[in-house]
Amino acid sequence: MVVLREGMCPGLEEGLVRDLRAADIKTVEDLVSSDMEELAQKCSVSYKALFAIRRVLLAQHTAFPVSGADLYEELLSSTAILSTGNPSLDKLLDSGLYTGEITELSGGPGSGKSQVCFGVAVHISFHLKQSVIFIDTTGGFTASRLLQMLQTETRNTEEQMEALQRIHVFRLFDVYALLDCLYSLRGGGLQQASVGGGSVKAVIVDSVSAVISPLLGGKPNEGMSLMIQVAGVLKTMAKDFNVAALVTNYLTRSGGGEVQPGLGVSWSHIPRTRLLLERVDKAAVFSPSSLRSATLIKSSRQRCHIRAEFDLKWWSRSEDTSSSRKRKLEETDS
């Protein structure tokens, strides 16, 4: 409740404030919800002057009402859904990654988080012909891996190179560098990355926990503040520029021994959607399978705790197809 006082806006003088209070109009909310004609008579002021004061106070202190239908229409017109390239993951995510939102992949070592990020980047750059910002904080990014995936999609070297050029890579290894990069992207870097290569439709951070979690142990207050800054700039960037933000997170255990995404409760409210990735055959240490499971643990659109299996080789089938092609060529030559 905002109390009316002298000087809040032009025309709201001491005498008028006194008259308004005598008429039991003490707050901005009281004034804007009153009958202007009746109030003008009570306070011996012109209707036009009182209406002008009301209009200024509305602009300064209250939000203009928007209907739910208008908000929904705005959402439909601004939101795009980006396929991950993997049908099983798309089904879990209700068709794919939504622009304007943050989606999180959490999982332990070897769960396939980075491979999924690579696959998403390749799919958006090659099939959608849009640009991707890929922020690597672990040193796990390799261009050769992306090229291997692209070789599945096309044999044309020029097309492969064009797709690679649409993936803009930043290697950053502390939270301050990450923040500098995100602020720079929000301040104009996204538009620059869009020049000549389609607009930026996805920002991938692999991983957000690698640069934040070390600070939460030693200096928790400072770490928490930096984490909230990272979350804030990612959310505003996703919404203001209509991009999908995809981040990865590590796993930790709760007091009861349950596996859960890291970075604590405060971070858990940041992603709109969260997937937990796990290896299907955890016992196969020496010959690990490429099969992984994904469990939806947070969503505003789907029923949570639904699970699907997918194959990491979906984005790199060139290993199999190239081998079979090579064998066929050898058989033909012989």
Rank of each mutant, 00 (worst) to 15 (best):
C117S: 10
H127D: 15
G112Y: 08
G100R: 11
V122S: 13
T103S: 10
S78K: 14
D90G: 02
V120C: 04
S106L: 04
D94C: 14
I102W: 03
L93I: 01
T79D: 10
V122H: 07
H123M: 10
A121D: 10
L93P: 01
F126A: 06
A121G: 12
G107P: 06
S78R: 15
I81R: 06
Y98C: 12
V116C: 01
P87M: 05
H123Y: 14
T99F: 03
S78P: 11
Q130S: 11
L97A: 11
T84S: 03
A80Y: 15
T103M: 05
S131V: 11
L93G: 02
F118T: 06
N86F: 01
S106K: 02
V116I: 11
S111L: 10
G85L: 10
S125K: 03
S95E: 13
I102V: 14
T84W: 00
S131W: 09
G112H: 06
E101I: 12
I81P: 03
K91V: 12
A80T: 15
S111T: 12
P109I: 06
G119N: 09
L89Y: 01
G85E: 05
L97W: 08
S106Y: 08
G112W: 06
A121M: 11
H127N: 14
L89Q: 02
D94V: 13
G112R: 09
E104W: 06
